[in-house]
Design a protein around this nucleic acid. Structure first.
Length: 431
RNA sequence: GGAGACGUGGCCGAGUGGUUGAAGGCGCUCCCCUGCUAAGGGAGUAGACGGUUUGUCCCGUCUCGAGGGUUCGAAUCCCUUCGUCUCCGCCA
C-alpha cells in the first residue's frame, strides 16, 4: 500500500514508476478522491466541534433546570446531526474507494532494478558451481531409476488429482531430510528463529502481505473462510502486524518449514511433468523485519543465506535480479536463485528473495519506535525461500544421478539420512 | 457443537448515558531532595486523521477489541463481528 502524501508530493514520479511495471497511471485519480475526502473531513470536524459544544450546553442547561435553554440547544444539535451523518457517509465512501484502489496497486521498483517485460529481461549477477558433465544423457528427476518407484504421480492423481505426488521410502525420507537440514541450517548458521505457524489464515492476513484482494484466485479457501497459505511468508510476516516494536528488537528474523498451497491458476500446460510445480509443496521460508535503513543490506544477507544452502548441498546455481516486469506484487527488488537442473538443461527457480520496504508494513500496520523516542515509523519487511524443498529434491536427484541409475547424495545431508550418502538404482539407501 | 463470562492507555485496574482521553496503582523519563544501597517530593508519559505550519508550535476531530446503530450527547444502551477464558460435548 502506498502513502498518499508521497503520491501527492510527486504524482508524476509515482506514475512513471508504475509505468516501469506496465501499470497505467493512477496518481491523478487517487489525489482527486483524496481531495474530496479531505474537504469532507474538514467540514465534518467543524460541524462535530459545534455539535459537541451545543450538546454540552444542553447538558448543563438540563442540570440547571432551564428547560427552555435545554430544548433550544438540543434542537440545534439535532439539526447538526443530519449534516454530519451525511458527510460521514461521504467520507466512508471516499475511504473505501481509496482503499480499493490502493490495495490493488503493486509496489514500486527500486531505481536500480532493471526494466523489462518478463524473465528474459532478468539480469544475472553471479554464478556458483559448475554444471556436472555426464557421459550419458541426464534424465529428469522422475525418470531416474532411483526415484522411479518412489515418486508416484498416478497414485496421487487417483486420490487428489493432477499436480500432486506421493513420495515413498527413501525418496520420502530424502525429502524430509532436506527440510530438516535447511531449517537447522537457518537456525544455527543464519540467525533465524524457528517458528511453526498456522497454514490457515484469515482475510486480513492475506491482505497484509498482498495476496488479497487482487490474487484471490491463486490461493485456496476453506468452507469456513480461511485461506491456505501459498507461502509461510504470509504467516511469518504478519507476526508483526498491528504492533509497534522497540527499535532494539530489530531486526527480527524468522524461519519456518511449512506446507504451501497454490491453485496454479493460469499455469495450465507449464511444468506438467514431474514435481516441479505442485498444488501442495513444502518450503523453508525466511522472513526479516528491519529498520528502513537496513533493509537493502538485509536483502543481500538473505540472498547469501539461501545461496549458502545450495553451496552446502553442492548444487550449481545462478542468481538473477528480476526485471520490473517479472517482480511480484509486493516487491521493490527481488533476487531469484536458479538451481541447475541437468534433466532440463536449464537453471530453474529454487528461491526468491524480496525486499518490500514499507509496502506490506503499511498494509498490516507494522511499525517500530526509535530508541530516542519520536513517532512510530513503518518497518521494512523481507521474505525469501530457503529453500523450496520439492525443487531441491529434484536438483539433488538430477545433479547426483549416475549412469547406473543410482544417485550420489550431498555429504552435508548425511546426519539427516542416518549416515547414508547414496541412493541405489532400486531406490534404497546405500553408501 | 452447547452454555456462560469477559475484552479500557506500556502493564494492572476504576468507571452503567453529560467537561472521562479516561480515577488509582505499577513501570518508564526528567527534575528536586536526601549525600554509597534504600526511601521521599514534583512534573511528564498513546495513536490516527484533518487544519495550520514547515518551528519536533498550535488548534480541532476520532479512537475504551473491531464495525454499525439508538440518542441533543455513549467506554457506558442495542446489533454484528473478532478474540480470550470457564464448564460440557467431541477429537489428533
Amino acid at each position: 500500500m502506498h502513502d498518499i502524501r508521497k503520491i501527492a508530493q510527486d504524482p508524476d514520479g509515482f506514475d512513471r514508476s508504475l509505468a516501469r511495471r506496465g501499470i497505467e497511471q493512477a496518481a491523478a485519480h487517487i489525489l482527486d478522491v483524496d481531495g474530496e475526502r479531505r474537504r469532507a473531513i474538514t467540514e465534518a470536524e467543524r460541524l462535530r466541534a459545534e455539535r459537541k459544544a451545543t450538546s454540552r450546553s444542553a447538558g448543563q442547561a438540563q442540570v440547571a433546570g432551564d428547560d427552555a435553554a435545554f430544548e433550544r440547544h438540543r434542537d440545534d444539535a439535532s439539526a447538526l446531526r443530519a449534516r454530519i451523518m451525511d458527510l460521514e457517509g461521504k467520507i466512508r465512501d471516499c475511504d473505501r474507494h481509496l482503499r480499493e484502489i490502493l490495495l490493488e496497486i503493486p509496489n514500486l521498483p527500486h531505481d536500480d532494478v532493471p526494466d523489462g517485460c518478463d524473465e528474459n529481461d532478468n539480469v544475472e549477477i553471479r554464478r556458483w558451481g559448475v554444471p556436472p558433465e555426464f557421459e550419458f544423457s541426464p534424465k529428469e528427476h522422475f525418470e531416474i531409476d532411483a526415484s522411479h518407484g518412489s515418486m508416484d504421480f498416478e497414485l496421487a492423481a487417483r486420490i487428489a488429482g493432477s499436480r500432486f505426488v506421493v513420495l515413498t521410502g527413501a525418496i520420502a525420507r530424502l525429502h524430509r531430510a532436506l527440510g530438516q537440514f535447511m531449517l537447522d541450517w537457518n537456525t544455527t548458521r543464519n540467525g533465524y528463529l524457528e517458528a511453526n505457524p498456522p497454514v490457515l489464515v484469515r482475510d486480513e492476513t492475506m491482505i497484509g502481505t498482498g495476496q488479497l484482494p487482487k490474487f484471490a484466485g491463486e490461493s485456496y479457501r476453506t468452507t469456513d473462510g480461511h485461506w491456505l497459505i501459498p507461502t509461510s511468508e504470509v504467516s511469518l510476516t504478519n507476526f508483526v502486524a498491528d504492533t509497534i516494536l522497540p527499535e532494539d528488537e530489530l531486526p527480527q528474523r524468522y524461519t519456518a518449514h511449512t506446507l504451501c498451497f497454490r491453485s496454479e491458476a493460469g499455469a495450465a500446460g507449464r511444468d506438467t511433468a514431474g514435481m516441479l510445480r505442485q498444488h501442495q509443496f513444502e518450503k523453508v521460508e525466511m522472513v526479516s523485519v528491519t529498520r528502513p535503513e537496513d533493509s537493502r543490506a538485509e536483502l543481500d544477507r538473505m540472498t547469501g543465506c539461501a545461496e549458502g544452502i545450495l553451496k552446502a548441498l553442492e548444487l550449481p546455481f545462478r542468481t538473477v535480479v528480476l526485471c520490473t516486469g517479472d517482480m511480484g506484487f509486493g516487491a521493490c527488488r527481488t533476487h531469484d536463485i536458479e538451481v541447475w537442473l541437468p534433466g532440463q538443461d536449464a537453471y530453474r527457480e529454487i528461491s526468491s528473495c524480496s525486499v518490500c520496504d514499507e509496502f506490506q508494513a503499511r498494509r498490516m500496520n507494522a511499525r517500530f519506535r526509535r530508541t530516542g523516542g519520536g513517532k512510530p515509523e513503518y518497518v521494512h519487511t523481507l521474505n525469501g525461500s530457503g529453500l523450496a524443498i520439492g525443487r531441491c529434491l529434484i536438483a539433488v536427484l538430477e545433479n547426483g544421478q549416475r549412469s547406473d541409475g543410482s544417485v550420489l547424495l550431498p555429504a552435508a545431508l548425511r546426519p539427516w539420512l542416518g549416515g547414508f550418502s547414496k541412493l541405489t538404482a532400486e531406490g534404497e539407501f546405500g553408501g
